[in-house]
Amino acid sequence: MIPPKFDYHAPGTVDEAIGLLQKNAGDAKVLAGGQSLLPLMKLRLAEPKMLIDISRIAKLSYIQEDPELLRVGAATKINDLNDSQVIRSRYPMLADAGAHIADPLVRNMGTVGGNVCHGDPGNDLPACMLAIGARYVVRGPKGDRTIAAKEFYRDTFVTALDPAEILTEVQIPKAQNGDGGAYMKMERKVGDFAIAAVAVHLRLDSKGTVTSAGIALTNVGPTVLMAGKAASSLVGHKPTDADFLAAGKLAAEAAQPASDMRGPAEFKKGIVQTLTRRALHLAWGRAGGKS
């Protein structure tokens, strides 16, 4: 399988890249790690006339925690996310997800930015970003703007990104005491996209009451989905297994899966229910909750 012909550019700055995108509107695509784009091009399902490789732009790859935010540069490799001590110890949901994206080799090329920008409902990081309340910093011809992750996903492969915009950074609220998250994914085999996967994020007060919750679902709809009712059902409670089970049921109701080779829709809803309950238990434990 051979990609069709295209023109390749490797600009040194974000602005240069935006300039190229603007000049070649409709024909040009950003290339980050290429682990989503190149497979599509090899199958000739995507035929961009120009690729703009952003991997040579300095300072787009970093993981940095400051007083307000965790900042992840768009070009950060998924395996760098997985290897980061900060991520593993303080944002374990992202490490859970990162370890289940594709396979270890793909993760050495694939980037956080590519994973969240691709717009495939099967990508694993978007659900984490929704559950944890991330914002995306994007730069275009008119400068920077930030978009809440939950506003970003419009339809399958359709995002809020304008054609001449580039994602530069993902911003995540800094982890506090009483925060706990988890990502659980069921896959047909390692390296596969999810049958269904669930990201949950809980914040507990000092008494163990849930003060905020986020639940989002991977690959059970046209885009990543929020399970808002499931999340809000937990707020104000010191939850028990019965609450997690109930939240699981609500999450399953929020899912809109289609029957396909990964299984019938009803099954996928069942998996959402099971994984939500289990992920909530794990997140609850990580947040310091005691039952």
Binding site: M1, Y8, A10, L31, G34, Q35, L38, P39, K42, L43, L51, D53, S55, N79, D103, P104, L105, V106, N108, M109, G191
Partner: peptide
């Protein structure tokens, strides 16, 4: 394979294993 699944093409790129069927030569420049 054609779909980045088999790893028969694995090489080290700057010491990290990657699937060379899904990397452009120009990316390795």
């Amino acid at each position: 394979c054609d779909t980045t699944h088999c790893g028969a093409c694995t090489v080290l790129l700057d010491d990290r294993p990657v699937k060379s069927c899904t990397v452009l030569a120009v990316q390795a420049d």
